[in-house]
Simulated assay, not measured.
Amino acid sequence: MRITVSGLPGSGTTSLSRYLSERHGFTMISAGEVFRQCAKEHHMELAEFGRLAEKDPAYDKMIDARQKEIAEKKDNIIVEGRLSGWMVEKADLRIWLFAPIGCRLERIVFRDQIADIGTAKAITLEREHCEAVRYRQYYDIDINDLSIYHLILNSEHWEVNELGAIVDTAVGQLQAACGKTA
């Protein structure tokens, strides 16, 4: 089974992916963590690294190609990332997590240890705009087109284990349809 988990920064995609990976024993691949690691390796903030990636498509394309290649070769995998729903063509379950900007900013301030909400908002909105432009340019993908997703969940209203329970039900139904047990 191949599951993708996508959403905007701070929506909880990494947390849900980790939950699903642990719960079902699936391998997890995270584009965001790879991107953050690349930014650190280049001694750059995320927004700054995003601008670099905007100028040189090799950064995005390398991360996306690596995720896609691994996902196509493996089974029982969770692929987390903004584009994973688009990139993993043989995904059995595509999930989009949504959360209002205020909720996401609170999470981002905590996660990325940003000084205040205003700074987090400026960085996040710039990052989202930069990514949307790159996705359109590189792949002709409109990140706001959610029509490819099987589940769209608002992560503001549920803790990760509650979101996980919803997805667990979907996974169980898919496995039952394929003759596998959860």
Rank of each mutant, 00 (worst) to 15 (best):
A71C: 05
A53S: 15
L174A: 09
A91P: 00
I166Q: 09
L105W: 02
H42K: 13
R82F: 06
A71K: 03
C103L: 06
D60P: 06
E126D: 15
G81D: 04
D168S: 07
A31M: 10
E128C: 06
V171A: 10
K90T: 11
K90V: 03
I143N: 02
F49R: 10
K74R: 12
A176F: 03
I141M: 02
E33V: 00
M1F: 06
Q37P: 01
G12V: 06
H129Q: 15
A91I: 09
C103E: 15
R82L: 08
A91F: 14
I108M: 00
K90E: 11
P100Q: 12
E22P: 00
M1K: 06
V5N: 05
K74N: 07
Q37Y: 04
R127A: 12
R51F: 04
K73A: 09
T124C: 02
E89A: 11
E126S: 13
K61I: 10
L146Y: 09
S17G: 15
I63N: 07
A132S: 14
A176V: 08
I143D: 05
G172P: 06
H43C: 01
R51Y: 02
E33K: 00
V109D: 08
L46F: 05
A122K: 15
L16G: 08
I114N: 05
A120S: 05
E69S: 02
S21E: 02
G118R: 02
L16H: 06
G10S: 11
R111S: 09
L174F: 01
Y59E: 03
K55W: 00
Y138E: 13
L163A: 04
V171R: 02
G172H: 00
H43F: 01
S30N: 11
G10I: 08
C38K: 13
F98Y: 13
E22T: 05
R51Q: 00
A120Q: 04
E33Q: 08
K90Q: 11
G179K: 12
V160Q: 01
I148S: 13
K40T: 05
I143F: 01
D92K: 07
L105D: 03
R134P: 04
P9W: 07
G32F: 02
D92N: 14
L174G: 14
I95G: 12
V88C: 01
